[in-house]
Write a protein that binds this DNA or RNA. Structure first.
Lengths: 95, 95
DNA sequence: TAAATACATCGAAATATATAAATATTTAAA
DNA sequence: TTTAAATATTTATATATTTCGATGTATTTA
């Protein structure tokens, strides 16, 4: 369980989700079940490494991804609790 | 029931949600249960009319709001089906 | 320890978005 | 049929974001 999100967090998460590359990154990581390596994800895109780093940073800063370092690699999982809290916020607009 | 959203639609909806004013506009409309008048919503903000119009347009263009004209007023409801479809997309990242 | 790999950060250019003033359009009321 | 009210559109400017190349920092391997 996670506390409900405030409006600033919802804004940040929404911004992070408002880009096609970042949506694809999330999808790749979510489909990879376990931790996905950063360099493997980057290989799927035709973007400079610094650009990928920037996109991933936004997803991590929005708490949509949880990052873990393994040696010189970075690995990720989708943050389920934050996704759920975000979904709760959207749903609260619908009741 | 609505067809599931494609990634372009998810991107557009996320962008529309990625602004504090637009989040507040949505909240006001959702809390107002029935149709909310555009000018009443605008009165809640310290923004120029053209700016409000621009924000509301983005919410309508993203299909988050359904607009209806009543005389010279515009009224809105939250589009539940689109919210639900959006939530479904986010949830699909979590499974 | 030197070289290579993985990732982050910085600086600059291009593009997109937010905001507002001015103006236009539509509809209602006088 | 003027006039006023509600909203949209256009234009301009300020700010934010995207992207990349160059460079920096760890960490691993030769």
């Amino acid at each position: 369980m996670i506390a409900s999100l405030n409006i600033k967090q919802v804004e940040k998460i929404s911004k992070a989700l408002g880009d096609p590359y970042r949506l694809k990154i999330l999808k790749i990581i979510s489909e990879n079940q376990n931790f996905s390596k950063c360099c493997d994800i980057s290989a799927e895109f035709n973007l400079a490494q610094s650009t990928m780093s920037h996109h991933i940073k936004q997803l991590v800063d929005a708490d949509l991804l949880i990052a873990g370092k393994e040696g010189r690699n970075l690995k990720f999982v989708v943050n389920k609790e934050v996704c759920t809290a975000y979904v709760d916020y959207i749903n609260s607009l619908v009741v």
